[in-house]
Design a protein around this nucleic acid. Structure first.
Length: 424
RNA sequence: GGAGGGGUGGCAGAGCGGUUGAAUGCACCGGUCUUGAAAACCGGCAUACCUUCGCGGGUAUCGUGGGUUCGAAUCCCACCCCCUCCGCCA
């Protein structure tokens, strides 16, 4: 969430952000400011009464110690009414406070100035695009056909065992997954990220901390019996790793990488988007997370973007980089790049990475702070990015690497990890 | 799953229901001393919110939520979490 003080002094800026993101409701800003004023009025009055009540209690204590019971009783008789009033005000103040919090949760983060203003995905700016490979000299197959021929992913049995979108990877297909995960993690660790292996179910506080709750619960699978959620991304456990903590500014940036399976309900998806490996309910991903000094979060964003791009380059996959326009920014993001890989047989771009700065929006929610010397703690900035999501990478590796005989040529960089350079 | 023990400030660790937001030690910051450092000594050192132009003042917080009381870290209830032992088990 945003700082209420910031909204108080920049209401128009916040309204403009809501308009440009096409998320939320402009009116909620005024409602918020009104609720905030009401809350503060109630708080002030409540605290005045509490202060008086504390004075009386202190006096009673002094009289009791001095043995002046009569005087003490006299004051006691005055307390009943105030007590009742305090109770009422406490009730009202806490209602007002949760109203403010709820409205605050309805206000999206403000886009960075460098983000293009737009109204649809068409306004995303293509920042970079690889030259596309020459057309195949044979009939190229989409990856779902290649997978079947090579018997490296089994959707049908996955559907039998669990359901649609939960495939089995088989043989070299499974090994390829493992190789990609290792390659991605090793590369990140070499760049200074600390590898974490997090829990893949989280509690409600964590889901709230990164913003999956209260709004996006539909995207997550729940373990209702224990109050847990299956993670939709490693971002959730990894960012919450530092929840409710105050770090020394000198210890920043904190850089983590983590491989996890990710679980998404993807309710309502259909058509070509879910064909083959394009969209799954369970998939593997290596995620990068940084917690940084607010002064340097945009540098960190570029760094993470580069970290992800270098993986694509090492894999020899044609890709493009989109600077997302305001309309395509998520609720919590101030700036975001998407990396899309070229799927040679489908002849379309597939998103394989999304790298975002949240500034202090997530940190405020998750209470991740840092302290400069003896100063008051302030909220850190958090960022995350995929490096990378596996299924579409696999799809692209298969489609782009296919040969006339139906076998797949794997990139050099993976051979150390797979132990083979061809899938046939 | 069963039995028991415990949750207090960055850490360790006190805390008869009444100047206890909380002793003490360590850590940390500033200062004195020193050629420099260490030691010693002095001082400071939780968080959020309300209020004030500011100095400052105030409220809340001792796992969480309720309750008793004029007054709760301290008493009562519920819940959560951690530890130990037993059971089960990769």
């Amino acid at each position: 969430m945003l700082d209420i003080g910031f909204i108080r002094s920049n209401p128009d800026l916040v309204k403009k952000a809501i308009r440009s993101k096409r998320l939320g409701n402009e009116d909620s800003v005024d409602q918020l400011l009104e609720a905030d004023q009401a809350k503060r009025d109630l708080t002030t009055e409540l605290q005045k009464l509490q202060s008086q009540a504390n004075d009386r209690a202190r006096q009673i204590g002094e009289f009791m110690r001095a043995g002046e019971r009569i005087k003490a009783d006299a004051i006691k008789s005055e307390t009943a009414e105030a007590k009742k009033r305090i109770k009422e005000l406490e009730q009202q103040a806490s209602e007002a406070a949760s109203k403010v919090t709820n409205l605050l949760l309805d206000i999206p983060n403000v886009p960075d100035e460098s983000v293009p203003v737009g109204t649809s995905p068409d306004d995303n700016k293509v920042d970079f695009e690889s030259t596309l490979p020459d057309a195949f000299s044979f009939d190229a197959l989409p990856h779902w056909d290649l997978i079947k021929q090579l018997n490296i992913v089994d959707f049908d049995r996955g559907a039998k065992v669990t359901g649609a979108g939960f495939p089995f990877y088989i043989g070299k297909g499974a090994k390829l997954q493992r190789a990609l995960i290792s390659f991605f993690l090793d590369t990140a660790v070499a760049k200074g990220y600390t590898e974490l292996q997090p829990p893949i179910v989280v509690n409600e506080d964590s889901a709230r901390g990164t913003g999956q709750l209260p709004d996006k619960e539909d995207m997550m699978y729940e373990v209702t019996r224990d109050g847990f959620y299956l993670i939709p991304t490693a971002e959730v456990p990894v960012t919450n790793f530092l929840r409710d903590e105050i770090l020394d500014t000198g210890d920043l940036p904190v850089k983590y990488c983590a491989y996890t399976p990710c679980f998404r309900r993807e309710a309502g998806s259909y058509g070509k988007d879910v064909r083959g490996l394009n969209r799954l309910h369970q998939f593997d991903k290596v995620e990068l997370v940084q917690v940084v000094d607010p002064d340097s979060s945009y540098d960190a964003l570029e760094e993470m973007r580069t970290d992800a791009e270098e993986l694509l380059e090492a894999l020899g996959l044609p890709y493009r980089r989109l600077l997302m326009c305001t309309a395509d920014l998520g609720f919590t993001q101030t700036k975001k790049y998407d990396l899309e890989v070229w799927s040679a047989a489908q002849e379309r771009w597939l998103e394989v990475s999304s790298i975002s700065n949240f500034e202090s929006y997530q940190a405020r929610r998750a209470k991740i702070r840092h302290r400069r010397g003896n100063d008051k703690p302030e909220f850190a900035h958090t960022l995350n990015g995929s490096a990378l999501a596996l299924p579409r990478i696999v799809a692209a590796l298969l489609e782009n690497g296919q040969r006339a005989d139906g076998s797949i040529q794997l990139p050099e960089a993976l051979v150390n990890y797979t132990g083979f350079d061809t899938i046939s």
